[in-house]
Design a protein around this nucleic acid. Structure first.
Lengths: 342, 342
DNA sequence: CTGAAAGCGCTTACAG
DNA sequence: CTGAAAGCGCTTACAG
C-alpha cells in the first residue's frame, strides 16, 4: 500500500490551501461548485480519509468514550455495553472497551485516560465496594458518569436502577402469593444495588405485618458459586423458607444448582424471583419470574448524560433512576401447606 | 481542573530538554540518578500523564485495535470479546468496540479505520455472507484478521473453529447412541461455520452406512426465531426424527420453545446436541450436550495473530484452526423404539 | 551523551 | 472570503 494521502496531498491536487480543504470537509465553509468538484475529485482519487488522531489532537477531543466495566463475558454487562455502543455510534462516538475484573488499579488507570485526553469521558461500572482509592482518584475528574453501582461519597452524575422500589414490588408479589417465610440472597455488602434491594425487600416484609419474616438475608458475591453455597446454607439453617429473592441471575443459577442436587423443585417446593433477567429465564421449567433491569434505557441514558457532561450542557437531573420491571412468569406460586424443605 | 501538564512543563520543571524527558519516559536512555529524581519529581508534582494521541500521531501507530463484531449482547461474541480484550490488555493494546449488526456499510467503515490510522489493525467477525463488497473493501488492507467466519475469496489471516471435525464427532456421538434418523438445523447458507458443520454432519451419516439418514438439513439464520420456525417445520414434515444437531445456542433455544409448546421432551422423545455452549446449558433439564467453541483460545490466538501481522513478524500459519470440544451431558440418549414425534 | 528542531496530520485564530 | 502560519503534544533523526 502506498503512502497514505494527507490533507496536504488533497490541497495540492485540488489547487487550494489545506485550510480550505479542512474547512470544506468539516462543513464550515461555502465554496463555488467548481472548487467543490476539484476537492471531491482529489479526495476520491487519492482515497483520502482524514486521520482521526491528528484531528483529535488539534481539536483537543477524541470523540471516544471509555466504557469501564468489570467483565464483558457477563451478559449483564454485555447488554449494557450493547446499549452504550449503539447510542455512542448514533452520536458519533467511539467506544474503548475497558475491562477491569474489579481490579482497582486498572480502574484508576482507566480513569486517568480522561486526563490524558485519550478519551473524552468515562462511563464507569464497578462491582466491588470502594476502599477510598477510587474516591480519591475521582477528585477533580470531569466527564465521568457512573452506571448501575454507586461509589460511596462520590458526588458524580450517574444512572441507576430503582432498586429499592423494584425489590419492594417483587417481594410484594411473593407475599401476595401467600408466602410468609421469605429469604433473600442479596449481593455484596456495601454495594448500592444490594443495599437498596435489601431495603426494598425489608420494606415489603414490614409492610406485610406480623407473621411475615425475612428468614434470612445472606450477603454474597454476585457469582454462581456464591449462590450455590448460600443456597446450601439456607436449606440447612432455614428449612421453613418457602420463597427466595435472589439479587442476580448468577446467584439464581448457583441456587438452582443446589436445588437440583438436593431435589428441591422450584415452583412446587419453593418460589423464586431473581434480579436482572439476562439469562434465558423464560426457557427454564418453570419459567422464572424476574425483576428486570432496563439495560437498554440505562445504557442510553448514561451515554447521553456523559455526552452532556462533556459538552457542559446543563442537565435536568444528575442522578437518573430507571424503573425496574417485574416480569411475572411461573416460579412464584402459593406455598404448600406446612412446607418444609428437604 | 487546571490546564493539563505537558512534557514541556515537565522539562522546564526538571530543567532538562523535552527530548531527554521523552527518552527517559520511554526507557531509551540512561540518566544520572540526580536527573532521574528531578524528572520523577516534576512528573509527580505536575501529575503528568503523557497524551497518547500525540504519541500515536508521532509514532504512526495507535496501540489500539478495532474489534468488529455483529453484536455484543450475544453471549458468543461477548465471550470472544472478553478473550480478545484480556489478551490485548496484556499486550498493551486498547480495544475499540465496533458493533456492526451485520450492516455491511458499517463493516466497511470500520475497515477504513485501519487506513486512517485510527486503529493499528482489525479483528473482524461477520455473521452474514459477503455480496462482494467486503472483499473489495479488503483489497490492499493490511493488519486484518478474521475470526470465526470466513469471507469468501479473501486470502487473509484468520482463526476458525474446526467446524467439520467437530460436527463429525458430535454426529458420531448421536449415531453411537443408536439414532438413525437425524436432522440438522444448520446456520445460514454460505457461511463457513454452517457449511463446514453440514459437511461434518453428512460425513458422519455417510460413514455410519445404510439405514442412517440425514432426514433434513435446514438452513436458518442463527436466531431464536429461526430455530423456533425450523423446529415446527421439522416436527411436521419429519416426525420420524429422533435426534437433532443445532448449529448455535440460539437455534437450540428456539427449537426448545417449539418443543415445549408441542410437548416434545428432550432426552425422552428426542436427542439433542447444540453448538457453542455459551448459554447455561448445563442447568437445563436434562442438561444439554454441546459442541463447544473454545472462545478463549480463539480470541487469544486471533489477537496474537493480529499483533504479529501489525509487527510484520512472520507467523507459522496464517489460518489457525482451533479444535472444538464435545461436552457430553444428558440430552443424547438411545432412541425410543418405533419413535414417532407428536 | 544531550538538545534544538523538524515532523506526525490535522484545526483555527489571525492577517490580508 | 482565502491562506500562511502557529499550534495540538508528542517522537526522533540529526548536529553539536
Amino acid at each position: 500500500m502506498a503512502r497514505k494521502a494527507t490533507i496536504r496531498d488533497v490541497s495540492v491536487a485540488a489547487d487550494v490551501s489545506v485550510t480550505t480543504v479542512s474547512r470544506y470537509l468539516n462543513g464550515s465553509i461555502r465554496l463555488p461548485a467548481e472548487t467543490i468538484r476539484r476537492i471531491d475529485d482529489a479526495v476520491k482519487d487519492l482515497r483520502y480519509t482524514p486521520n482521526p488522531l491528528a484531528r483529535s489532537l488539534s481539536r483537543g477531543k477524541s470523540e471516544t468514550i471509555g466504557l469501564v466495566i468489570p467483565e464483558i463475558a457477563n451478559p449483564f454487562f454485555a447488554r449494557l455495553a450493547a446499549a452504550v455502543e449503539a447510542t455512542a455510534a448514533e452520536r458519533g462516538y467511539g467506544v474503548l472497551l475497558c475491562v477491569t475484573l474489579n481490579n482497582i488499579d486498572r480502574e484508576i488507570d482507566y480513569i486517568r485516560r480522561i486526563e490524558s485526553k485519550h478519551v473524552d469521558g468515562v462511563l464507569f461500572s464497578t462491582n466491588h465496594p470502594d476502599d477510598g482509592r477510587l474516591l480519591t482518584a475521582l477528585r477533580d475528574v470531569p466527564c465521568f458518569v457512573l452506571v448501575d453501582e454507586d461509589i460511596t461519597g462520590a458526588d458524580v452524575p450517574g444512572v441507576f436502577a430503582e432498586n429499592r422500589g423494584g425489590a419492594l414490588e417483587a417481594t410484594r408479589h411473593i407475599i401476595d402469593a401467600g408466602h410468609r417465610k421469605i429469604a433473600m440472597l442479596s449481593g455484596p455488602k456495601k454495594l448500592l444495588s444490594a443495599e437498596e434491594r435489601r431495603l426494598g425487600f425489608l420494606d415489603a416484609i414490614r409492610e406485610a405485618g406480623p407473621g411475615h419474616d425475612a428468614v434470612a438475608v445472606l450477603d454474597c458475591a454476585y457469582t454462581v458459586e456464591a449462590g450455590e453455597a448460600a443456597a446450601e446454607d439456607l436449606l440447612q439453617r432455614h428449612p421453613e423458607t418457602t420463597a427466595v429473592f435472589t439479587g442476580s441471575d448468577e446467584l439464581f443459577l448457583g441456587m438452582l444448582k443446589t436445588f437440583r442436587r438436593k431435589g428441591v423443585r422450584i415452583g412446587d417446593d419453593i418460589s423464586v424471583i431473581t434480579c436482572d433477567d439476562v439469562e434465558p429465564l423464560a426457557l427454564f421449567e418453570p419459567a422464572i419470574t424476574a425483576l428486570r433491569q432496563d439495560l437498554p434505557q440505562m445504557g442510553r441514558k448514561a451515554l447521553d448524560l456523559l455526552i452532556s457532561t462533556i459538552a457542559r450542557t446543563p442537565v435536568p437531573e444528575r442522578q437518573i433512576l430507571v424503573p425496574m420491571e417485574l416480569v411475572k412468569r411461573e416460579s412464584v406460586r402459593a406455598p404448600r401447606r406446612r412446607a418444609r424443605l428437604r
